[in-house]
Amino acid sequence: MKMSRSSVLLLIAIACISSAGAFRQPVVFPPLDASKYEDASAHELPEQRIIATDSAVPEENHEHADDRPATAPHEELPRSNETRGEPIALAQRSSTIRIKAPEHSLAVWNSDGTICILARFQATFEIPYATASGKKYASIKMPPNRELATRGVCPTESREPLFEVQWPLFKFIMHFARIHSPSSWYVNKIEVQYNTNSPLFPGALNPGRRYASATQNISLFKTPMGQSYGCPLYPPLVLTHQNSSSEIRVKLRDIRLQAYQLTGNYGPLSRCQQVAMAHTLDPYNYDRTVPVAVGSTLAGVSLATIVGYALYRSMFATKVDYGNIR
């Protein structure tokens, strides 16, 4: 019963959106048959169980809910799982006001409206795929935030958080885990789900859904508890397909990430050791003591240099002049 109701809702929504011409085309993805995508995804996603949502409230809860106007991808995509499994985490019907996420960041909210996961990053995926003329690579870039939908699972005592970002035909999932001594968190699984039945994979053989992950003892972005992870340029991550040897390379840059103990904004920065050339966007610490101290010292040294030179000139130059006169 529930299922059919939501299906009807879905169809109505799609009809309204497309008839109103409001289907917002993502920059990198061509328009696609959304219902087909829904169908395809509904049966194959391996991780649905975890990100299941309350089926009665299909639209409002689990997507990225900042102030941007809801667009087609926002409305449609999160519902791919809407009727599956048991509600576990983010199934709240509450109309609590959510805390606004920091600018340009993707967020997941708790039932009381507080932020429990914050993330911002750029991702590029190098995906090999088979064609009639051999192996080819598709380079796929994560679209801008406004075209993304995010969902996730907030951390509790018993459950580790999960963060999912998706856009048409594509899904990128991070699983978190924590260690108690020393108290820290890290990412222990990364997944990518995509569909090669798309113009981004021209000439792909056996087009359809693909799944790749990196699970073999990975511990990425290890960060002390209460802090956020930041990195301007992360070395490429290698994800392997389930039943083939081909590897996806994921390049993440400008990362800022925190999944535990958030207080509305990112915690103190724990930065990686990578160097990015001419990168001026390194997330600065919010603590301004050091920059202010260094800045004042620099101003002082500059002034002292000028004053010192003026004194030197006034003493030294005068002497020279007297010498010349004699």
Binding site: P102, E103, H104, S105, L106, A119, R120, F121, Q122, P144, N145, R146, D254, T280, L281, D282, P283, Y284
Partner: peptide
Amino acid sequence: HLPMPPIP
């Protein structure tokens, strides 16, 4: 349009 602050 990046997920980054414009002026850090």
